[in-house]
């Protein structure tokens, strides 16, 4: 099974999803990220979904779960790079991603997180 790499930049973790997500890959990412937040003491997590051409309810739930887990572990999550067509589809699907912070790109996401520290 593929695993998605988690990069550490200062006290941030960057996850850039570049593959077509299988459900098992998604579940592995939740666990890997929780581990990495604790082992690195990261204060923020950026999830880059620029390469994702869809976000369905399973992937949406994963984003919400990761945001909740990282909050409990004292880190903030920002989801960046959502494509316009994906945003339109998500809202129509009924997923509002409440409680998830978003930014247009990685740079803005980093700025959003660094403003909080």
């Amino acid at each position: 099974m593929e695993r998605i790499p988690i990069l550490k930049i200062g006290d941030l973790l960057l996850v850039s999803i570049q593959v077509d997500l299988q459900d098992q890959t998604v579940m592995a990412l939740e666990e890997d990220l929780a581990q990495k937040i604790v082992s690195s003491g990261a204060r923020g997590v950026i999830i880059d979904i620029t390469a994702l051409d869809i976000v369905d309810s399973f992937i949406g739930r994963m984003l919400a779960t990761i945001a909740s887990i990282s909050r409990v572990l004292d880190a903030e999550t920002v989801v960046v790079g959502m494509r316009p067509a994906v945003a339109i589809t998500l809202v129509e699907l009924g997923l509002s991603l409440d409680g998830i912070k978003t930014a247009l790109d990685v740079e803005r996401g980093m700025r959003l997180l660094s403003g909080r520290r």
Partner: peptide, 11 residues
């Protein structure tokens, strides 16, 4: 947008 909606529904 319609491609994205259909692919999401199919997923």
């Amino acid at each position: 947008v319609d491609q994205t909606k259909l692919v999401t529904a199919a997923s």
